[in-house]
């Protein structure tokens, strides 16, 4: 690697002569060693999933959760250094809370991604800190219905407000991925961590970015997510699968971020294992 021995990689926020910040690149390496995380934006919601490598037989099964709820309608999963991820989530919760305090309304997924992208970026600016050793996937469902200002009393005209732009829809499912540099993009399907290459290849086969929007339903996406993580998984290690989802108000989670019900997760895992075996036979 050209970075080693030059001295330009020994401190954060230092540019090398060709304009790179090596410490940020090394932080990405920390992400690439972590268990695979994926997110899928579907027709009716978002699905998040993570491959949790079982590092010890003494771990309590299914007790250590990795996907966190940041606000009612927002979930975050990440790959890389887990304590860094927990810090990220705490900050994301603070941001969501602060937004509600000032604007009396839930933060939009895009706005949270923007705030957290800014936060991550700030940790690339100073020699006194190091970048985050995580890549985070933020999923959310912004209410499609009109929401009141928190705490407001009364209601407008019974016929509803006039002068709305006709035919325009609002809200819906959103998915963002934020890298250690602070860079973030919106995604149809996102993957990070050790198995990201294989996972991305599988995600690209799904019908997520068509002109009419994603065709996949959440229930299908849960099964795809399980299958993809099994494909991306390095066979000789044991792992736990954790999955969460967020639907709109009329869906299974009623706009909230929840763990995928046990029965559905187990069914998805069964199908994933089956698909895996069929592939082996080929």
């Amino acid at each position: 690697m050209t970075s080693i021995g030059t001295g330009y990689d020994l401190a954060n926020s230092i540019f090398s002569p060709d304009g790179r910040n090596f410490q940020v690149e090394y932080a990405v390496k920390a992400v690439e060693n972590g268990g695979t995380s994926i997110g899928i934006r579907c027709k009716d919601g978002v699905v998040l999933a993570v491959e949790k490598l079982v590092t010890s037989k003494l771990l309590k099964p299914n007790a250590n959760k990795r996907i966190a709820t940041v606000d009612r309608h927002l979930g975050v999963v990440y790959s890389g250094m887990i304590p860094d991820g927990r810090h990220f989530i705490e900050r994301a919760r603070d941001e969501a809370r602060a937004w509600r305090d000032t604007f009396k309304t839930p933060i939009a997924t895009a706005d949270l991604a923007s705030r957290m992208g800014g936060y991550m970026q700030a940790y690339t600016l100073y020699q006194s800190v190091r970048p985050f050793g995580i890549t985070a996937i933020v999923g959310g469902f912004d209410s499609a219905a009109e929401t009141p200002v928190d705490g407001e009393v009364g209601n407008g005209p019974a016929c509803g407000a006039g002068g709305k732009v006709a035919g325009k829809t609002h809200g819906g499912p959103f998915l963002y991925m934020i890298e250690p540099s602070g860079l973030y993009w919106g995604y149809y399907g996102a993957a990070t961590g050790k198995g990201r290459q294989a996972a991305k290849a599988e995600l690209e086969k799904l019908d997520l970015g068509g002109p009419g929007g994603p065709a996949l339903t959440m229930e299908e996406a849960v099964k795809e997510a399980a299958r993809i993580l099994y494909v991306a998984h390095d066979d000789d290690k044991e792992f736990e699968l954790e999955m969460t989802w967020i639907s709109g108000a009329d869906g299974p989670t009623k706009g909230a971020h929840h763990e995928v019900p046990k029965a559905l997760r187990e069914e998805a895992e069964r199908l994933a294992k089956q698909a895996q075996e069929e592939k082996m036979e080929e």
């Binding site: 705490g151 009393v153 009364g154 407000a161």
Partner: peptide, 17 residues
């Protein structure tokens, strides 16, 4: 998104649609 709306805030600081 919401079209035309009217809110009133009387003396105590409550918010009424």
């Amino acid at each position: 998104r919401h079209g035309g709306q009217v809110y009133s805030i009387p003396l105590g600081g409550s918010l009424h649609k």
